[in-house]
């Protein structure tokens, strides 16, 4: 099962969700933001995604264990980004899936070919957005692209909500996106865990926001059961 975490707009919390979802699903997280990677860089000594996409390293050789998560980190150099062959990405994540079971792809912002290929490589997409017009519009465009490349939307995450602005928005977003919506509030414990490069569950095991991550995990596992049943209807 390959899950792409996307959403169009930058700064909506794609990397935060990828890290937490990767931990909750016991998946390998691929930091596929080739130019502006922001998941932990690992020890920085081994090969990274740039090397793998340039054909200089095997995918499994670049997977690192960073604290409680398994991560294929992305390089931080412009040369590395330029040398990366985007067309290799599908093959790379499929190999990781065969060897590790589940893969979470942390997509970059925007709607260029990098995001397109990552969505195309995935079995299901999770859209991350925020309760404002620009972010919702970008998420909707990302949804369109995902469906065009035949990747269904498993879940939509309304991130960084205030407790007051979610009430009637959830129903509207759910109707428009055609996928279950989970609300994650803006909270200091989530930001602190992300700054430490660790999942919320290990940093703050009593946080009420863990329920939100649980419901996203269930939505993904439901998709997984559908897909393994051979019927592509969600």
């Amino acid at each position: 099962m390959i899950i792409a975490v996307s959403g169009g707009k930058g700064g909506v919390g794609k990397s935060t969700l990828s890290l937490n979802l990767g931990y909750e699903l016991d998946a390998v997280i691929v930091d596929a933001d080739l130019a502006t990677a922001d998941l932990p860089a690992g020890a920085g000594r081994g090969p990274n995604l740039h090397d793998v996409l340039a054909g200089r390293a095997e995918p499994m050789a670049a997977v690192e264990t960073v604290g409680p998560i398994r991560l294929l980190p992305c390089g931080r150099t412009l040369e590395g980004a330029r040398a990366s062959k985007l067309v290799e990405l599908t093959r790379v994540v499929e190999r990781l899936e065969r060897q590790c079971g589940r893969v979470v792809i942390d997509c970059p912002a925007g709607l260029a070919q990098d995001v397109g290929v990552e969505l195309y490589s995935a079995d299901v997409a999770v859209l991350v957005t925020m309760p404002n017009r620009v972010a919702l519009h970008d998420a909707y465009r990302t949804r369109r692209l995902a469906l065009d490349v035949e990747t269904p939307i498993g879940s939509v995450v309304l991130n960084q909500c205030r407790s007051t602005d979610a009430e009637d928005l959830v129903g509207q977003v759910e109707a428009k996106m055609g996928a279950p919506v989970t609300v994650i509030e803006r909270r200091a414990d989530i930001a602190a865990a992300q700054a430490a490069g660790r999942p919320l569950r290990t940093e703050s095991p009593t946080s009420p926001m863990l329920e939100g991550f649980d419901s996203i995990t269930w939505a993904i596992e439901r998709c997984e059961r559908h897909l393994s049943g051979g019927i592509g209807v969600l």
Partner: peptide, 20 residues
């Protein structure tokens, strides 16, 4: 359109001017 044709139609990927 096939997915491959849709991907080919997207803007080319490049690092943002910010990072350059």
């Amino acid at each position: 359109a096939q997915p491959e044709a849709i991907l080919a139609d997207l803007d080319a990927w490049s690092p943002t001017t910010d990072i350059v």
